[in-house]
Design a protein around this nucleic acid. Structure first.
Length: 421
RNA sequence: GGGGAGAUACUCAAGCGGUCAACGAGGACAGACUGUAAAUCUGUUGCCAACGGCUUCGUAGGUUCGAAUCCUGCUCUCCCCA
């Protein structure tokens, strides 16, 4: 029954495991949970690791529980945060909760998996009840020994955030009592909160519960995973276009791609190893990165998303000439440049431009200032309609594709579409 | 309650009356090389009508021909004593 931990192990998804977890998992189907706080109206790629845990759990025949923190999100988890954060309003949290719940449904089969919201059990609990029923069981010295608290003792931490581990601990206790859940999973930064839960279960219910964590996902160069120049990579296509999402994975380095494909896809060990050796034989084909990007984009945005992102990528990074670009029909243009940042300007905007930098920094915000635009143009970094241009170049009507489009490329990887209407 | 230190650009961090749009490092972006990789080398990194101009050094005033640098009030942060 339990290939679960082994599966996670070869994929490099195991960091700390509480003693006894494996033995217990071997005893038969169990229920395990991961919590997600609704701090934004979409999950991002960092959450994907945790989601994959639930997916593996389900595939191993167990019951995954995705817990949305409608209540804990009101408080704010201090883990891994060096500063106190602002509270979100209840409205925002409710909205975020809904959005995240919806996203969850794409990954798990909720005919057997469970989707819960801890507001359901915290919503009506009074403060006095809480400190009597929960607070009484966990000593403050135990709480302050946690890394998440210790780190903040000097710089300061509100009582609110200090309490967070108790809330999360109670979640685990509640799931233990009502859903036979004895396993909690999460990122390494959650370890302290997770052990507060097992401790509460031990003290309050005399029960035994288990936990393990996934390692912090990093990039080979040591920088933070899941960020691009424009910020977080979100699962919501409104916040990160499907094209950008696909590109995020495609651009990962060889070392990263090999690790990511284990973590974020369900490909078997044999498949992964075969891909790796294939990749080594012809690294320029980016086989590993392509498979990775395709697989994840497929899971998050569906087959259509993959087709579109690939089409756009192939066009923009292929050697499409100005002529090829000009030969595109309007329909093709709209299809290909879907997901590429687009700016709308008027014909008078275009004709009133005194220089290219004016068009790129003032009429559109492709660059943040004219100075920057000029510098970039001077360093040979800007192309219009697939050919390098100088600052004295100004698009004339005959340069517009289909009479209304301009493709502006900044550097190697940033494409923008200007629509003149 | 008493005493001390400090607040500089994305971050760290120099500067202590003119030569400061502000040393240096990191980061970021770009160019070359490549494979939309890594490493390496190079350039850029306040804004503009640009061999010049304008606005920046917590905030509000003041001294001075001239201030990030000196003085005063205010706000915030940290440390020590009680």
């Amino acid at each position: 029954m339990n290939n679960f931990l082994n599966e996670l192990k070869w994929r490099g998804m195991l960091a700390d495991v509480m003693p006894g977890t494996e033995d217990w998992l071997n005893q038969g189907p169990i229920a395990g949970y991961v919590g997600f706080d609704p701090t934004a109206d979409s999950l991002h790629v960092g959450h994907l690791v945790q989601i994959m845990l639930l997916v593996h759990l389900q595939r191993a025949g167990h019951t995954p529980i995705a817990l949305i923190g409608g209540a804990t999100g009101m408080v704010g988890d201090p883990s891994g945060k060096s500063q106190e954060r602002n509270l979100l309003t209840p409205d925002t949290i409710a909205h975020n909760t809904q959005a995240i719940q919806k996203q969850m449904e794409a990954f798990l089969d909720f005919s057997s998996a469970k989707l819960l919201n801890n507001l359901d059990w915290f919503g009506n609990m009074g403060f006095i009840d809480f400190i009597r029923d929960v607070g009484k069981h966990i000593p403050v010295n135990y709480m302050t020994a946690k890394e998440s608290v210790k780190k903040r003792l000097e710089t300061g931490m509100s009582f609110t955030e200090f309490t967070y581990q108790l809330l999360q601990g109670y979640d685990f206790y509640y799931l233990y009592q009502h859903h036979h859940c004895r396993l909690q999973m999460g990122g390494t930064d959650q370890w302290g909160n997770m052990t507060t839960g097992t401790e509460l279960i031990r003290r309050k219910a005399g029960g035994e519960a288990f936990a393990f964590t996934t390692p912090l996902i990093t990039k080979a160069d040591g920088t933070k995973f899941g960020k691009t120049e424009s910020g977080n990579v979100w699962l919501s296509p409104e916040k990160t276009s499907v094209y950008d999402f696909y590109q995020f994975w495609l651009r990962s380095s060889d070392a990263d791609a090999a690790r990511y494909i284990r973590i974020f896809t369900l490909k078997s060990k044999e498949e992964v190893e075969a891909l790796e050796s294939e990749h080594q034989g012809a690294p320029h084909e980016l086989k590993l990165q392509r498979c990775l990007a395709e697989d994840i984009t497929q899971r998050v945005h569906g087959q259509e998303g993959v087709i579109m992102a690939e089409k756009t990528s192939n066009f923009l990074f292929g050697k499409a000439s100005t002529e090829e670009l000009k030969s595109l029909s309007e329909k093709e243009i709209l299809q290909i440049f879907n997901g590429v940042p687009t700016f709308f300007i008027s014909h008078s905007d275009l004709s009133s431009c005194s220089e290219l930098a004016d068009l790129l920094a003032v009429k559109t915000s492709i660059f943040s200032s004219k100075g920057e635009a000029r510098r970039m143009i001077q360093s040979n970094a800007v192309s219009v309609n697939q050919s390098r241009v100088a600052n004295d170049f100004l698009p004339a009507p005959e340069n517009l594709i289909q009479g209304k489009y301009l493709l502006v490329q900044k550097g190697k990887k940033n494409h923008n579409l200007i629509v003149i209407q």
